[in-house]
C-alpha cells in the first residue's frame, strides 16, 4: 500500500504538461522521500473515512438508498393489500411472502438485482473520479499527500461500501417490513428443508454478502469509466448500460460461450445459499469472476489515472 502510494506521488509529480498553479501547489506539499508505512496506512484510512463521510452525507446517496428501501416496502404493502400470488407467478419467492415475512427481503433482492442496484452502483462508481473532476476538486485531492493510486483505492473502497449499504438496505428493510406485515416463522428453503428464524436471518445476510460481491466487478468498471471522462453523467450512464447489456447477452443462447465471462452471469446465483445443504460453488465462481474484473478494470483505471492530465 505504502509503495503504491509512493508511486502515485511520484507519478503525480512526474507528469510533464501541467498547469503551473498545480505544480507549484503540489511541490511544497510533497512529503519527504521515505514516508513511514504506518503514516501512509493511517493517511489512507483517514482519507477513506472522510470519503465515506462525504458519500454518506450526500443527499443523493440517501435518496438512492431510500429508493432501494421502497422496493421491499412496495412489495410487502402490495402483497398485504392484494393478497398473495399463486406459486410460479411473479418474481421468485413472491408466493411465499404471505406465509413468511422473511421472504420479502429475498423477493425484493430478485427484483432489485437486474436494474435498480446496478443503477445506484453505477451512479456512485461512475461519479467517483469524474464527479471530483467536474467539481474541480480532483486536483485538490491530489495536492494533499494522497497519491493517485491511493485516491483510486479509496474511491473504490467507498463504492464497495455503498454496494454493501445498498444490498443491506434491501434485505434489512425487507425483513423489517415483512416482520411488521406478515407472520414470521421457520424458513422453508428451496430444497424443502425448514430452518429456524435465526438461521434464516443468517442466510439473508449471506445473500446480501453474495450480492455485494456480485456488484464489485461492476464497481471496478464504473471506476475505470469514471477516470475516462470529466462528465460524471456519462460514466454513470455507461456503467448502468453495460450492466443491462451484459444481462441481455447473458440471455441470448447464441452467445453461450461468452456467458461464464459476463460480470452479470452469477448475479441471480444467490439462490444457492437458500439450499440445504448450501451449495458454495456459485459463491466461489462469482467471487473469482468479480475478482478478475476488479484486477482488469482496476489496472486499467490505474493506467488511465496515472497518465491522465488532471486539469480540473
Amino acid at each position: 500500500m505504502s509503495s503504491e502510494a509512493g508511486q502515485g506521488l511520484e507519478a503525480a509529480a512526474a507528469l510533464p504538461p501541467r498547469p503551473a498553479g498545480e505544480t507549484a501547489a503540489s511541490r511544497p506539499t510533497r512529503p519527504p522521500e521515505a514516508q513511514s508505512p504506518a503514516r501512509a496506512a493511517g493517511g489512507t484510512l483517514s482519507l477513506l473515512g472522510s470519503e465515506l463521510l462525504t458519500l454518506f452525507r450526500r443527499r443523493r446517496t440517501w435518496a438512492m438508498l431510500g429508493a432501494l428501501a421502497l422496493i421491499p416496502i412496495l412489495i410487502a404493502v402490495a402483497t398485504r393489500i392484494a393478497g398473495g400470488s399463486s406459486p410460479g407467478r411473479g418474481p421468485a419467492f413472491l408466493d411465499q411472502v404471505t406465509g413468511n415475512g422473511l421472504f420479502v427481503g429475498v423477493t425484493a433482492m430478485t427484483v432489485a438485482i437486474p436494474l435498480f442496484l446496478p443503477l445506484t452502483i453505477g451512479v456512485v462508481a461512475g461519479d467517483s473520479i469524474a464527479g471530483e473532476a467536474s467539481h474541480g476538486t480532483l486536483r485538490y485531492l491530489l495536492i494533499a499527500p494522497a497519491g493517485r493510486i491511493r485516491l483510486l483505492v479509496v474511491k473504490y473502497a467507498a463504492a464497495a461500501a455503498f454496494c454493501a449499504a445498498a444490498t443491506l438496505t434491501v434485505v434489512i428493510v425487507g425483513t423489517l417490513i415483512g416482520w411488521a406485515l406478515f407472520p414470521v416463522g421457520p424458513v422453508t428453503l428451496l430444497s424443502g428443508a425448514t430452518v429456524s428464524v435465526g438461521e434464516g436471518l443468517l442466510r439473508l445476510l449471506a445473500v446480501a454478502a453474495y450480492v455485494t460481491v456480485s456488484l464489485l466487478g461492476m464497481s471496478a468498471i464504473g471506476l475505470f469509466l469514471s477516470t475516462l471522462t470529466t462528465v460524471p453523467v456519462g460514466a454513470m450512464a455507461a456503467t448502468a448500460i453495460l450492466a443491462v447489456v451484459s444481462q441481455i447477452m447473458d440471455a441470448l443462447p447464441q452467445l453461450e460461450a461468452l456467458h461464464p465471462w459476463l460480470f452479470t452471469h452469477h448475479w441471480l446465483g444467490f439462490g444457492d445459499l437458500l439450499r440445504e445443504p448450501i451449495v458454495w460453488d456459485s459463491f466461489a465462481d462469482n467471487a473469482l469472476l468479480q475478482g478478475g474484473y476488479i484486477v482488469v478494470f482496476g489496472a486499467l483505471a490505474v493506467g488511465r489515472f496515472l497518465t491522465k492530465d488532471v486539469l480540473s
Binding site: 507519478a11 484486477v295 482488469v296 482496476g298 489496472a299 486499467l300 490505474v302 493506467g303 488511465r304 496515472l306 497518465t307
Partner: peptide, 8 residues
C-alpha cells in the same frame, strides 16, 4: 503506467 493494465 499502463503496464499493469496490459499485464492483468
Amino acid at each position: 503506467r499502463w503496464i499493469p493494465a496490459i499485464a492483468a
